[in-house]
Design a protein around this nucleic acid. Structure first.
Ligand SMILES: [Mn+2]
Ligand SMILES: [Mn+2]
Ligand SMILES: [Zn+2]
Ligand SMILES: [Zn+2]
Lengths: 149, 149
DNA sequence: AATAAAATTAGAATGATTCTAAGGCTATTT
DNA sequence: AAATAGCCTTAGAATCATTCTAATTTTATT
């Protein structure tokens, strides 16, 4: 019997796809970036901290430094491949979902859940102060454990 | 001519009002708390960082430590006298406006502007995940400088 | 006044993130 | 296929907001 394959492999085809993605974003294609991109993007959308990504990288056999993880996350974000979500006073979350969307956040559980843009209706917005334009409208729904479960 | 009075004075009447407020919130009335409360609440609503409040305290002649400023802000928040706003990865803002409301945030200028709750119409919300209740809905409108000023 | 409990504080510790500056890779040019 | 120049990566130090510790000071109670 074959061994289970819990993680998507970084095939040559995937490497090519990711290399194209990095190139299109104006980033050079390097091994660390390619493999971090694979970890980030292989399985649908996710919210990840720098620490979690570093652990994952190490678990996958990639020997990469903390600085590179931070650099890569920041570069991916600057290039528009990731977006940063600010919900917790302690740490930053990086979001692989760069479409317009919103979040549930469970405080104390450090858990972010996507809300599709069309599931929230922000019907009316006030005018922006003179000289400023709206960059992004963010809705964060903070959750509590139910009163009685 | 009388000297200008740029800051509201901490009169006996104000002290009594603030003492009542602290007492109602379950906090003991102490000189540092009274005077920090005065700085926080004397002039309408505001958004303040711990560092800014410490500077203000010192400028007003209150000799208080950084630890006390942090303790006081955290206690006021836990007591419901302040609310914390999380918009910047670097630092926390404390908001004296505890009513339901929203914010404009100008990145790079570290500036928060209140939006009255009724100026935004969040018409429809998705159901919360099972076992969780909505604690608070937060709308943050991130602003950019206009394209051409 | 004596006592106990809570508050304040200086300074150290923490922890996420950034910086430095040195060596390693990549792409380009000869 | 060198040689070159410009990124990239990295270990470790630095930064900086915030929290913690342990000792002192205040406040409230007896
Ligand atoms: Mn950055
Ligand atoms: Mn706290
Ligand atoms: Zn998301
Ligand atoms: Zn506000």
């Amino acid at each position: 019997m074959t061994s289970p394959q819990p993680r998507a492999d970084l095939t040559e085809e995937t490497r090519n796809r990711l290399a194209t993605k990095l190139g299109a974003a104006g980033l050079r294609v390097t091994e660390p970036r390619l493999r971090l991109a694979h970890l980030l993007f292989r399985h649908g959308n996710r919210h990840v901290t720098a620490e979690a990504l570093l652990d994952e990288a190490h678990a996958s056999g990639l020997r990469v430094s903390q600085a590179t993880v931070y650099n890569t996350l920041n570069q991916f974000q600057a290039a528009g491949l990731l977006r940063q979500v600010q919900v917790d006073q302690a740490r930053s979350y990086f979001d692989t979902n760069i479409d317009v969307h919103h979040h549930f956040y469970v405080e104390g559980e450090a858990r972010l859940i996507d809300i599709a843009a069309d599931a929230v209706d922000v019907a009316r917005l006030p005018d922006s102060p003179a000289g400023y334009d709206v960059d992004r409208v963010e809705v964060i729904i903070r959750l509590d454990k139910s009163d009685r479960s």
